[in-house]
């Protein structure tokens, strides 16, 4: 058995496979405006290899903030975050390396619309390439092979050379997933990936996300506010309400009582 201990003495990740969990949050807090606005309070959990975790909660619960703290698009004001056992909270030099291992999918897709689908997916390989090479927009043969493979995984290989803005919303999100996959990540963070899509397309996208997670053994932390999707796709649900973690368990254990705690009076927004 392998036990990793954080600086506060808390045990993080007890695994028998001698591998630390992919990511560990220990007492992570985030406040804004010198402490007056509290976004997260003492959030702690681990995510293991290949796990598909859904973070459930209404808007404003802190789901986005928490996800962005993991790849440090936002800086936590308290607590620690460990990536594969290594602390990344206060390490500026290893930031690029850490981000290389974490892919991210956004609600607004965030593709570069004027570039081709292929270029967008290739940009997931940038962390592996030198600045000098990128000056000429050049990638290796291996990069191109990986990019095409990732596009095939989301069934969009045939649209590789179209401009990204010619694709529908669901297709663009799949390209975004392919871009994240091109990084060969250990973890994918998905921040409300289907909030802008209609339910049928949303399910398609979540199907792809779940599929690649299982096939490639990539851990996924997915923010959702729709309870139905959480029940359908999650192996494990973490409930967040007003910045606090109030539930951590299988979707089957989501009773009405617990859902009420998470959503309070905003239940309607969660049921589609």
């Amino acid at each position: 058995m392998n036990m990793n201990v954080s600086t506060t003495g808390q045990v993080i990740g007890v695994t028998s496979a001698e591998k630390p969990p992919i990511v560990s949050l220990v007492n992570v807090s985030k406040t804004y405006v010198r402490g007056k606005l509290v976004a997260l309070t003492d959030v702690s959990f681990d995510v293991g290899h290949g796990e598909f975790v859904v973070i459930l909660g209404p808007s404003g619960a802190g789901k986005s903030t928490m996800l962005r703290c993991i790849n440090r698009l936002a800086e936590p004001t308290g607590g620690q975050i460990f990536l594969r056992g290594n602390e990344i909270t206060n390490a500026p030099r290893s930031l690029r390396k850490a981000r290389q291992e974490i892919g991210m999918v956004f609600q607004q897709f965030n593709l570069v619309t004027r570039l081709s689908v292929m270029m967008n997916v290739l940009s997931g390989r940038l962390s592996y390439r030198s600045t000098w090479r990128s000056l000429f927009y050049s990638f290796t043969r291996e990069d191109r092979a990986i990019a095409l493979e990732c596009l095939e995984m989301v069934a969009l290989g045939h649209k590789a050379f179209q401009r990204a803005d010619t694709l529908s919303g669901g297709e663009q999100q799949r390209v975004a997933i392919a871009r994240a996959l091109a990084q060969k990540p250990k973890l994918i963070l998905a921040d409300e990936p289907v909030a802008s899509l209609d339910p049928k397309i949303a399910r398609q996208v979540l199907d792809y996300l779940k599929d690649v997670s299982q096939r490639l053994g990539i851990s996924v932390i997915c923010n959702l506010h729709q309870i139905d999707f959480a029940r359908e796709y999650a192996e494990r649900v973490i409930g967040l309400s007003q910045g606090k973690l109030i539930f951590d368990g299988p979707p089957g254990a989501l009773t009405d009582d617990i859902l009420n705690q998470i959503y309070g009076s905003r239940m309607e927004s969660a049921v589609e």
């Binding site: 892919g103 940038l126 927009y137 871009r179 990084q183």
Partner: peptide, 20 residues
């Protein structure tokens, strides 16, 4: 948005300027 996505992917400053 695209700039943030490239940041999250681990791209360097110049790469973000060139691609984003």
């Amino acid at each position: 948005g695209p700039v943030e996505a490239l940041q999250a992917a681990g791209a360097g400053r110049m790469q973000i300027i060139l691609f984003g």
